[in-house]
Design a protein around this nucleic acid. Structure first.
Lengths: 196, 196
DNA sequence: GTCTATAGAAAGATAGAC
DNA sequence: GTCTATCTTTCTATAGAC
């Protein structure tokens, strides 16, 4: 791994744990085991490091979810939707590393860099939504999902769970069987609400 | 309003807008129209201001929701649950002022003050949950809500919406008829999922 | 690319006069 | 209670040697 890649990797962890302002250039340099001024040989300033971190996390996040969708396809829409949700929330890498960072800065972007990173986040959302709406519409064509509900409403409810379950997982520190229980409680009511 | 109350009021706004670290004592002093050192005549340090701000917001938030529950009682459980949700999200004061602050620091508490403020938040949650579980159980006794679902699952799903709708409202900047539409889309699937 | 040294600004907090 | 002046620390960032 190049020094530049190391800097991005360690800064993602620090930004996740402490937030934007409370992560100093000194701390990042310590984690990478170089001195602070050396960072400026790789990045113009702190904002540039943050931008690269966001870019990497949003990219990996989208890749992770799209890959999951691909791998669970070919089942019923119900199974696909459930498995995508389940896999996303039982994968260590996603929940521990990507999720923490992603949600921290999706919800509360530092004002200095908001204009730069909003488009990155927006684009990643659009990619996921267009993949998921297809599955919903297939489910309606199959008569698994109630076709009197618009696909937009079903998708909105699914995304509401997909995005916000993360908030609860973090807040209640849900893991293992507790997480499994929580996920099933939310999923079961959602499915009763949309099934045919 | 005393100077102390003014300081708390203005600091809530600043912490909401900029976060904990990016809100400086100088900025707070400017908003209150005094000089920075004068703040220390009212509060020991910055953490103490933040603690008072959290205490006030959590208190007002709980009062707001409990009052809303009281005012909408005496209807069917369905109407009460819907109206509490609706009222909470169409009230300017709640969404613009309390909500922004509350969720910012519920989700991402500054590490310096985490130990102090977690109990405040925990207590406010418990109060709301114990008021809402009663309404769910009444609804099951009335046969409005499916009694084969445990009241815990129904409450969990309701709170999932109640707490996390705020995240989406802020993220998508939902207002007016858009907010109304969003709320109804989420509510309608929830209610289909729990009704008898 | 990495370092030492340092500039320059801003942060939280205190001393002490009024 | 409020102020001016100041301390101390820490921050981002740069200059310039190697």
């Amino acid at each position: 791994m190049s020094k530049k890649e190391q800097i991005i990797k360690e800064s993602i962890q620090l930004f996740s744990d402490y937030g934007y302002e409370a992560t100093s250039m000194t701390k990042i340099a310590e984690q990478v085991d170089i001195k602070k001024p050396s960072l400026y040989a790789h990045f113009k300033n702190k904002d540039a490091i943050f931008y690269s971190a966001v870019k990497q996390v949003t990219g990996e996040y989208v890749d992770f979810v799209l890959t999951t969708i691909d791998q669970t396809k070919g089942q019923t829409s119900k199974d696909t939707l459930y498995n995508v949700l389940h896999h996303a929330y039982t994968n260590e890498y996603q929940t521990e590393f990507l999720g923490e960072f992603f949600y921290r800065f999706v919800l509360f972007t530092p004002n200095e860099v908001e204009a730069q990173i909003k488009p990155l986040i927006k684009r990643s959302e659009e990619k996921l939504e267009s993949a998921l709406i297809k599955i919903v519409e297939e489910g309606q064509a199959n008569r698994e999902i109630d076709a009197t509900l618009s696909s937009r409403i079903v998708l909105r409810n699914y995304l509401f769970i997909f995005n916000n379950l993360d908030v609860d997982v973090r807040y209640y520190s849900l893991r293992g069987s507790e997480l499994e229980q929580y996920l099933n409680d939310i999923w079961s009511v959602f499915w009763r609400g949309v099934k045919n």
